[in-house]
């Protein structure tokens, strides 16, 4: 996990170039070639990438919290080992992405500071609580599933380091979704209480996951600059539709009901139609008023501050060892 689209897609347009460097950059984008860290790029392109990649990195890192909550209470050793491996992967995803953003000239400390001060966003899905074990299933199946839909087009993103990080991440995500579905499968084939637990998790996670793809295309206020730059390749609504079409049959297979009375196959469109999405709730949670916003950020800040002495001591020790080794060599 997990990017969250907060930008609104529009018609792709590249502003006409005013300098030779910009013309070369535009030609490169138009030819679908990659931009690498030391190549010339417009300041706005750099800024957009820093914002998106760091948000994405923060989401991976904050995303460890709701699942970490269940590691000690996993129902078996097997499930515990799987969940630990998944959470460890998410930490790694955060690292790949921070490293990609650092190639754009922003430091790790600056990015963390922006997160901890509340200036930088992370995916709002993690501001919902994980109340039962079935939530581990729902998150893997739906949240990681939605993330995969979002992230596959990013593997072709115009910025080389971001695209390479995404390829690595996508390879690892598929295990996340499958282990989640596997939990849901076990619960839905279990006792009545277990099946009810799986249904309850689906009820709570469905709409927040549908919202993960970001605001509807028709509310477009931005210029579609991200699309023009080859950063965003598929619109929010198209990705959302793709996710719904893929997920409905999976829910049927589980014998679970998607909590949308208006969900219906539309033979004419060849897609599922869905009921209205509560965008007020989405913006409330993005704006900090979700059930767990304060708790997540406070936990993150506390972990960082409590670890400060370890980071400082390790650095001081390494410097001392380095100085001694140099002295011996002299």
């Amino acid at each position: 996990m997990y990017t969250q689209a907060m930008d609104l897609a529009g018609a792709p347009t590249l502003a006409p170039a005013s300098t030779p460097e910009e013309a070369a950059f535009n030609a490169r984008i138009a030819a679908d070639r990659k931009v690498e860290p030391r190549d010339w790029m417009p300041e706005a392109y750099r800024k957009t990438l820093v914002r998106q990649i760091s948000q994405h990195a923060h989401s991976e890192v904050v995303g460890m919290l709701p699942e970490g909550n269940w590691i000690t209470r996993a129902p078996s050793l097997k499930r515990k080992a799987i969940l630990m491996a998944k959470v460890q992967d998410e930490g790694g995803h955060g690292l790949y992405l921070y490293a990609a953003a650092e190639t754009l000239g922003v430091s790790r400390d600056q990015m963390l500071e922006a997160l901890h001060a509340g200036r930088a966003k992370y995916s709002s899905i993690f501001n919902y609580p994980t109340l039962t074990w079935a939530d581990m299933g729902a998150i893997g199946w739906l949240v990681d599933g939605a993330a995969i839909m979002n992230q596959i087009p990013l593997c072709r993103c115009s910025y080389g380091p971001y695209a390479r990080a995404m390829i690595r991440i996508c390879k690892e995500e598929s295990f996340h979704q499958r282990q989640g579905f596997d939990i849901m499968l076990a619960l839905s084939r279990g006792t009545t209480a277990q099946k009810a637990m799986a249904q309850d998790a689906l009820n709570r996670w469905w709409w927040p996951v549908v919202q993960m793809f970001g605001p509807p295309d028709k509310d477009s206020v931005h210029s579609g600059q991200s699309a023009a730059w080859g950063i965003k390749r598929i619109s929010n609504d198209d990705l959302r539709q793709k996710f719904i079409d893929a997920t409905v049959p999976q829910a049927e297979l589980l014998g679970l009901t998607i909590p949308d009375p208006q969900l219906k196959w539309n033979a004419e469109r060849g897609h599922y139609d869905i009921g209205p999405i509560d965008w007020d709730e989405f913006w409330r949670v993005v704006g900090g008023e979700g059930p767990c916003n304060r708790e997540r950020l406070a936990t993150r800040v506390e972990a960082h501050e409590a670890g400060a002495w370890v980071r400082e001591a390790a650095l001081a020790h390494a410097r001392k060892q380095g100085a001694r080794a140099r002295k011996r060599a002299a």
């Binding site: 690292l95 790949y96 490293a99 650092e102 690595r168 390790a314 650095l315 020790h317 390494a318 380095g322």
Partner: peptide
């Protein structure tokens, strides 16, 4: 080359 990371020294 696979990526980068922060560490205090080579061993770490």
């Amino acid at each position: 080359h696979v990526g980068s990371l922060h560490a205090v020294d080579a061993k770490q």
